[in-house]
């Protein structure tokens, strides 16, 4: 088990600066998820921790030692790749033992570790097979096993589940979470899938264009997004954004919509964007009609109802079986205690 410390990290690829002056502390035993859209530099960051990309400035510390210029094999890491990257000419067993054989681990020790890992990941019956004879899910299990036998302090995952179908992905996601609980190792996991980030992480790092936007527990990042980008990136259906103006008394007005946000009264009068999670919009049939239903998306266990109000389109989650007709006039309430308010322009949380 080790921690990872990045200081003033700069990475350039082909003359382009991908990451600039980045600091990040990963605690021992943490499951840290790097989340962001493709091209945000999260994979580059992971590769630099692994030593597969040279950093142009700054330092990488793993387990209290400076590893900035160390060879990938000396860093005490195990890595799982998106394409599995299994050695096609070797059996599962040889795949897993390749690294151990290279650094001269005694035969008995190799056998012990493989047996232990194979049992943990249910790879026993597959040990004699070649990668081509495995299904996608099995391949990814083997790739995870190959990283585990190294018994490294830090495990790195580079979008390991994105080549799998939805059902397998959910299955392996649960397995990974259990694995982390069992091993207690430090894990750094790159993904663009917010569901993986929310379910797996002990902490999420949201990145955009090479910069960290917010670091926090899944609940913090979801409930109190630091800016409009984070707010929009997490959550499905996405958060509703209502541009408007905050009055001196804490009353937010946008078109016909008026909300009393007493908690934000201190922010002063200014232009702002109000962010409302769909689950914080409650629709009722009675009361003063405030909007009309413009679209209903049934999801099985819930439905997403889109209502138009004063020129704004708002989505609302409905968990009961009530039905809404298109064009129906409805009333709605917003849970004002849980909304987010962002600066306009600027997009920073107020």
């Amino acid at each position: 088990m080790s921690n990872v410390v990045l200081r003033n990290l700069c990475i350039s690829l082909g003359g382009n600066e991908i990451i600039r002056d980045l600091d990040l502390d990963v605690e021992e035993g943490e499951f840290l998820v790097l989340l962001g859209p493709s091209g945000c530099g999260k994979s580059t960051l992971l590769h630099s921790i692994a030593g597969l990309i040279d950093v142009s400035a700054g330092s990488v510390g793993i387990g209290g030692r400076d590893m900035t210029d160390a060879d990938p094999s000396e860093r005490g890491i195990g890595m799982v790749f998106q394409s599995y990257a299994l050695y096609p000419t070797m059996t599962v067993e040889k795949n897993m033992s390749f690294g151990l054989r290279i650094n001269g681990t005694p035969k008995a020790e190799i056998a012990r570790r493989i047996a232990r890992t194979a049992e943990m990941l249910q790879l026993g019956p597959l040990l004699g097979r070649k990668p081509a004879q495995l299904s996608g899910g099995q391949r990814q299990r083997v790739a995870i096993g190959r990283a585990l036998v190294r018994e490294a302090g830090v495990f790195l995952f580079d979008e390991p589940l994105s080549n799998l179908d939805a059902k397998l992905r959910a299955e392996l996601r649960r397995e990974l979470k259990l694995l982390h609980r069992k091993l207690g190792s430090t894990m750094i996991y790159v993904t663009h899938d917010q569901v993986e980030a929310m379910t797996l992480a002990t902490r999420i790092v949201v990145m955009r264009a090479g910069k960290i936007q917010q670091i926090g527990t899944p609940a913090e990042v979801y409930e109190r997004p630091a800016n409009l980008f984070v707010a929009g990136f997490l959550g499905a259906p996405a958060m509703n954004f209502v541009p408007g103006a905050l009055g001196a008394g804490g009353v937010f007005a946008a078109g016909g919509l008026r909300l009393d946000l007493a908690a934000h009264a201190t922010a002063g009068a200014r232009d702002a964007v109000l962010g409302i999670r769909p689950e914080h919009v409650r629709i009722g049939h009675g009361g003063a009609p405030a909007g009309t239903v413009s679209l209903v998306e049934p999801m099985g266990n819930h439905q997403v109802v889109w209502i138009e109000s004063g020129g704004q389109l708002l989505s609302a989650l409905v968990h009961d079986a009530s039905t809404f007709a298109l064009g129906e006039a409805v009333s709605f309430e917003v849970d004002t205690a849980r909304v987010s308010l962002f600066d306009r322009p600027g997009g920073q949380r107020l």
Binding site: P72, S83, A85, L86, I102
Partner: peptide, 18 residues
């Protein structure tokens, strides 16, 4: 061939000739 194959071997400690 996928570059990741090579990277996996680098992490496993493989050198140029191996």
């Amino acid at each position: 061939l996928p570059q990741e194959l090579f990277q996996a071997a680098r992490i496993d400690g493989g050198g140029f000739l191996r």
